[in-house]
């Protein structure tokens, strides 16, 4: 099983690494001291198992769990002996280990993961998945901030940044329009100009080469206008 460890304590990471070395079928492919680093990795790589610390500053284990879209199996680690296992509401959490982790207990948890692994895929309920499809997490100053996608009315590109505008807030993110377009539902959003993506449901009116979104006049490229007109429910 390919696994990773996420823990802000170097000691805890080394203990897990040592325990993995003594297990025949566990390959520790990487270790991370924060949940944000782990998410970046998990977006690009597949693993079978995560050893995940619950208590981490700013972005803890539960935050990471809630962010994972197609989570592998997770074994939680905690230095809280009275840990209330609220986490078992998630099917992919197979066990939790209290630090310092005893070898026998570790092997028992891994054995459980092996057994449950054969029953995959598990994951969350359809309702939870549907709700997550309407959410987007953006990385601002090493914090992942959740945005409800339907609340976005406009995204504007300026230099190396994009500005995501919602009813109450504006977020500046180091990214590109192309990247964020891939994260948005294609039926609800449209790139009308090289620097603008609009939420079609927020259009107030349209003129020849511009569209009014809330109170902002947004230019529409000549090449994008046919697609825009096609997407509207014209009388």
């Amino acid at each position: 099983m390919r696994c990773i460890v996420v823990d802000d304590e170097a000691t805890a990471r080394l203990i897990i690494s040592t325990l993995c070395e003594s297990s025949e079928d566990l390959t520790l492919v990487s270790e991370f001291e924060s949940g944000i680093e782990a998410i970046k990795f998990l977006n690009a790589e597949e693993v079978d198992l995560i050893f995940l610390d619950i208590h981490m500053p700013t972005f803890d284990g539960m935050d990471l769990i809630k962010t994972l879209k197609d989570p592998p199996q997770v074994i939680l680690t905690t230095a809280d002996p009275n840990f209330a296992i609220q986490a078992f509401e998630f099917d992919f959490i197979v066990d939790y280990l209290v630090k310092p982790i005893e070898k026998e207990r570790f092997e028992k948890a891994v054995s459980r993961a092996r057994k449950m692994g054969s029953n995959k895929p598990r994951g969350r309920s359809d309702a939870a998945d549907a709700s997550e499809e309407n959410q987007l997490y953006i990385n601002i100053h090493r914090r992942l901030i959740k945005i409800d996608i339907p609340s976005i009315y406009l995204i504007e590109a300026k230099g190396d940044y994009i500005y995501i505008k919602t009813e109450g807030k504006e977020y500046k993110v180091h990214s590109t329009l192309t990247k964020i377009e891939q994260k948005l539902p294609a039926d609800a959003f449209l790139r009308v100009h090289r620097s603008f993506v609009i939420n079609l449901s927020e259009i107030v009116d349209i003129e020849d080469n511009s569209v009014l979104i809330k109170r902002e006049i947004i230019p529409v490229s000549r090449s994008k206008r046919p697609e825009l007109m096609k997407r509207l429910n014209l009388l």
């Binding site: 304590e9 000691t11 805890a12 208590h55 500053p57 230095a79 809280d80 630090k99 310092p100």
Partner: peptide, 13 residues
């Protein structure tokens, strides 16, 4: 409390 939590792990070790 956060640091006591981490130190607690070492005390256990």
């Amino acid at each position: 409390a956060l640091w006591a939590h981490k130190i607690k792990h070492k005390i256990g070790i």
